[in-house]
């Protein structure tokens, strides 16, 4: 899914050091050999392959394959962000194009992950950077919900602009609220938001088990508090929004990662 002209860059909180790359969130260093260092210092896999060709006298095809492979490996470890020139649309098109080749192997194309910085040093920075980190994903979720709800409700002859908008806003807002709920209790813990395809999660420095459970519970609780408020309001739009937010209750069950943290600890 990574192509030669995609931009590659270390995420905020991943620092290039003499001996490798240091991840401030996890507190670990990934050592790099000379080849790895050349690739990490390049701006695209194509630029990296040029540098490899010049520095190590390898042929063009192999240099590019090595550069893309290493970028994919670093991205898999959440240590490198990959941005296609045409944004998320490019990844979507590539995903669709890869699908016929991957399906026979009973697997799906893997969309590159993207790390976004969150500053957990104070409630204000948590709010600002937390919203900034989760908003792109939330907007996509809201737009997707709006399109699907319009088609389904329109097909049933029950489409109403206000209800569809309320539903989309609840889905998008719910994502932000949920993650802010986690982040508030991660104050002072190095954290970042990670998106990969249709998934968003928080990556943070290890905390003790009790705090981990409290953090896991805080996300669904934040969304449910707003759901309760909306369900108490009159009007169909508020009820639909409250109903959508109340789905975050599934965050207490083993169907979700938060729920598994809460319920399935050994």
């Amino acid at each position: 899914m990574i192509s030669a002209h995609d931009r590659i860059a270390l995420p905020t909180c991943v620092e290039r050091r003499e001996d490798g790359v240091y991840d401030h969130v996890r507190g670990v260093t990934l050592p790099l050999n000379t080849t790895g260092a050349v690739i990490v210092d390049a701006s695209t896999p194509a630029a990296a392959s040029r540098a490899l060709r010049l520095g190590f006298a390898v042929d063009e095809k192999r240099a590019l394959a090595d550069a893309i492979g290493f970028c994919a490996e670093l991205n898999e470890r959440l240590l490198l962000n990959v941005s296609p020139v045409r944004g998320a649309t490019a990844f979507t098109l590539r995903w669709v194009a890869h699908l016929p080749f991957m399906l026979p192997a009973r697997t799906l194309p893997r969309v590159p992950a993207r790390r976004r910085h969150v500053d957990t040093s104070s409630p204000r920075t948590i709010l600002v950077t937390g919203v900034r980190a989760t908003l792109p994903f939330a907007l996509l979720a809201a737009v997707g919900t709006f399109v699907v709800a319009s088609l389904v409700l329109g097909g049933l002859g029950a489409a109403s602009a206000s209800t569809t908008l309320a539903l989309a806003a609840a889905v998008g807002g719910g994502v932000v609220l949920h993650e802010l709920g986690h982040l508030v209790l991660l104050r002072g813990v190095p954290t970042c938001a990670v998106t990969r395809g249709a998934r968003l999660w928080l990556l943070h420095r290890a905390v003790d088990r009790r705090r981990e459970a409290v953090v896991a519970a805080a996300g669904p609780t934040a969304a449910l508090a707003i759901a309760a408020f909306l369900l108490a309001l009159p009007g169909l739009s508020a009820t639909v929004a409250g109903l959508a937010l109340s789905l975050h209750a599934l965050g207490f069950t083993v169907l979700t990662a938060d729920g598994r943290t809460l319920c399935a600890r050994r």
Binding site: L231, A249, C263
Partner: peptide, 12 residues
């Protein structure tokens, strides 16, 4: 937790 989640969802 499962009972609480189901109860909340059922009420909603």
């Amino acid at each position: 937790l499962g009972a609480a989640a189901t109860a909340l969802l059922a009420v909603a």
